[in-house]
Amino acid sequence: DLSALRVEEVQNVINAMQKILECPICLELIKEPVSTKCDHIFCKFCMLKLLNQKKGPSQCPLCKNDITKRSLQESTRFSQLVEELLKIICAFQLDTGLEYANSYNFAKKENNSPEHLKDEVSIIQSMGYRNRAKRLLQSEPENPSLQETSLSVQLSNLGTVRTLRTKQRIQPQRTSVYIELGSDSSEDTVNKATYCSVGDQELLQITPQGTRDEISLDSAKKAACEFSETDVTNTEHHQPSNNDLNTTEKRAAERHPEKYQGSSVSNLHVEPCGTNTHASSLQHENSSLLLTKDRMNVEKAEF
């Protein structure tokens, strides 16, 4: 173990290094160091905050020279020094078990990766560091076993998940096959086929009936047209017969005018059967003409 005197000496050296690497504005270890034209180094955030307070150039807090945003430059070497100082402080805390008085939040800088452990060898070769390295080497064999167990647990979990997924996939297939086998029997399929065939026959029977009705309507229309044509021909046949009657009536009127007047009046009210309204109107006109002729003949006879 380190003596108290040596611990104090190391602590004083760390404090001196820390004062050199402090920012003059925030009085902390410089984060993202930036250098000016006057070779003074500050935190990048502190300098941008200072420049944004005034429009135009501002003055350096140490030498009062003008500073602009374009004049600022990043210093990589200074950032490396800060990183190495942080590593020294971490090693000091691990070796002594004491917390550094002016320690900052170094938890963000710590890294437990194997590459980081290899890099620590180049920091300080001390008894405390050696003991700590031995402890780490002793704890390393235990870690692979834990990793193997965790991997086995994960693989077993994956296997159970896969088996569950396969079961879920197989179950719908089985149910679907069961439904297909038990849903419709052979008799049901035959009945469905016969039902479809009967429906098709009914459709075939319905369509000819409609065509037959249309044919019957067409035949009825044709018969009505033929009947009207026969009526017209009958009226045409009746007209010459009426003319013959008129000639006979004229002759009778010349011989017996008194008797014919009474008979002509009675004939006005008689309509021949089986004739249309057109034929009756023609008869009325003929009878009126005959009456006028008879009157003329009677007057001539009187004179």
Score class of each variant (00 low, 15 high):
Pro33Ser: 12
Ser176Pro: 11
Gln168Lys: 14
His284Leu: 00
Pro272Thr: 02
Thr211Ser: 15
Ser150Gly: 14
Glu229Val: 00
Arg162Ile: 06
Thr189Asn: 11
Lys44Arg: 08
Leu81Ile: 11
Pro257Thr: 06
Arg251Cys: 08
Gln168His: 00
Gln209Leu: 00
Cys273Phe: 04
Gln18Leu: 10
Ile123Phe: 10
Leu203Phe: 03
Leu81His: 07
Lys37Thr: 10
Leu62Val: 13
Lys44Gln: 00
His269Arg: 05
Gly199Glu: 09
Leu51His: 13
Cys26Ser: 15
Gln209Lys: 11
Val82Asp: 01
Lys31Glu: 13
Arg70Lys: 07
Ser152Ile: 00
Phe92Cys: 15
Ser71Arg: 10
Lys69Ile: 00
Met47Lys: 10
Ser103Gly: 04
Leu155Pro: 14
Asn65Tyr: 11
Thr76Arg: 08
Val161Met: 09
Ile30Asn: 06
Thr292Asn: 02
Gly97Cys: 09
Ala133Asp: 07
Glu258Asp: 11
Ser228Thr: 15
Cys63Arg: 15
Ser152Cys: 08
Arg165Gly: 05
Ile89Leu: 10
Val10Ala: 06
Lys54Asn: 08
Leu29Trp: 00
Cys26Arg: 15
Lys300Asn: 00
Glu9Gln: 09
Ile88Val: 12
Ser241Asn: 00
Pro24Ala: 00
Asn143Lys: 09
Pro141His: 05
Gln18Pro: 13
Thr76Ser: 01
Phe78Ile: 11
Phe92Ser: 14
Lys55Asn: 10
Ala193Val: 00
His40Asp: 07
Glu254Val: 00
Thr96Ile: 12
Lys19Arg: 12
Ala91Thr: 09
Gln93Glu: 07
Leu203Ser: 06
Pro114Thr: 05
Ile88Asn: 13
Gly159Val: 14
Lys37Met: 01
Thr96Ser: 11
Arg130Lys: 04
Cys60Ser: 15
Ser79Cys: 07
Thr207Ala: 05
Cys273Gly: 01
Asp184Asn: 09
Glu302Gln: 03
Asn15Thr: 08
Ala16Val: 01
Cys46Tyr: 14
Asp39Ala: 09
Leu268Met: 14
Lys134Glu: 14
Glu32Asp: 04
Arg70Trp: 07
Arg70Gly: 10
Leu137Ile: 04
Val82Ile: 04
Lys31Met: 14
Thr248Ile: 03
Gln93His: 13
Arg255Lys: 07
Ser197Asn: 06
Arg6Gly: 09
Phe92Val: 10
Asp95Tyr: 15
Glu9Val: 04
Leu203Trp: 00
Ala101Glu: 04
Glu9Gly: 13
Asn52Ser: 03
Arg169Trp: 02
Gln80Leu: 01
Asp294Asn: 10
Phe42Tyr: 05
Ala4Val: 03
Ser228Cys: 02
Cys26Tyr: 15
Val121Gly: 08
Thr233Arg: 03
Glu299Val: 00
Thr235Ile: 01
Ser3Pro: 15
Asn276Ser: 01
Thr163Pro: 15
Thr166Ile: 04
Asn143Ser: 05
Arg162Thr: 04
Ser266Thr: 01
Ser75Asn: 10
Ser280Ile: 02
Arg255Ser: 13
Lys87Glu: 07
Arg132Cys: 01
Glu271Gly: 10
Lys37Arg: 04
Gly56Glu: 12
Phe45Ile: 05
Ile206Met: 12
Ser35Pro: 06
Ser35Cys: 09
Leu164Pro: 07
Arg6Pro: 13
Thr36Lys: 13
Leu29Met: 15
Val13Gly: 07
Ala91Val: 14
Asp231Val: 06
Gly262Cys: 00
Thr149Ala: 09
Ser35Tyr: 07
Ala101Thr: 02
Leu50Ile: 03
Cys46Arg: 15
Gln73His: 13
Lys300Glu: 01
Glu22Lys: 04
Ile124Thr: 06
Glu22Asp: 05
Lys31Asn: 10
Glu32Lys: 12
Val298Ala: 13
Lys54Met: 12
Asn276Thr: 01
Asn243Asp: 11
Asp244Gly: 08
Gln138Lys: 10
Ser216Asn: 10
Cys23Phe: 14
Asn191Ser: 05
Phe106Leu: 10
His40Arg: 09
Leu117Val: 02
Ala91Asp: 05
Pro61Ala: 08
Cys90Ser: 07
Cys26Trp: 15
Arg212Lys: 08
